[in-house]
Amino acid sequence: MIKDYRLFWSALGLVALGGTFALLSLGYPLGTLHRMGPGFFPLVLGFILAGLGLVILLGAGTQTLGAAKVAWRPLGFISAAILAFGLLIGPFGLLPATFVAALLSAFADASSRPLPVVVYSAVLTAGVWAVFVLVLGIPFTAIRGVL
């Protein structure tokens, strides 16, 4: 009898996580209570977490969290922006990566319009250059091959 699947799966996840850590801990020397080895503390923690997960799991039968509203639009655009930043900064430098990431993340808001977003991203890119390169002096390649 499961009333709330989010509670159910998250609690099951906790049990699994605790169990995994406890299992992995057995691979390290446990030591004794007197001289604890590296495996002792995580083993105990793993058991505690699995136990807590089980108690929370019981609640999934009677409780509900209400309908979940997943913010798909921000999830998609902002994840893409962060990945784009990471992928572009190496080969192209800080400024192109910033510009593209700003462009992508701005569209997480449904009311964003292309032209203001381009202007905004350009301003933000200039700001990043001013703050991180000019003021803080962090050694970034601004634009590979140019700056």
Partner: peptide, 19 residues
């Protein structure tokens, strides 16, 4: 509007982590 604030925060996070 918030849409002018959060991209700046995201960029700040990216640059900070990368540094």
């Amino acid at each position: 509007p918030y849409r002018y604030i959060f991209p700046a925060v995201i960029i700040f996070i990216c640059v900070g982590v990368y540094s």
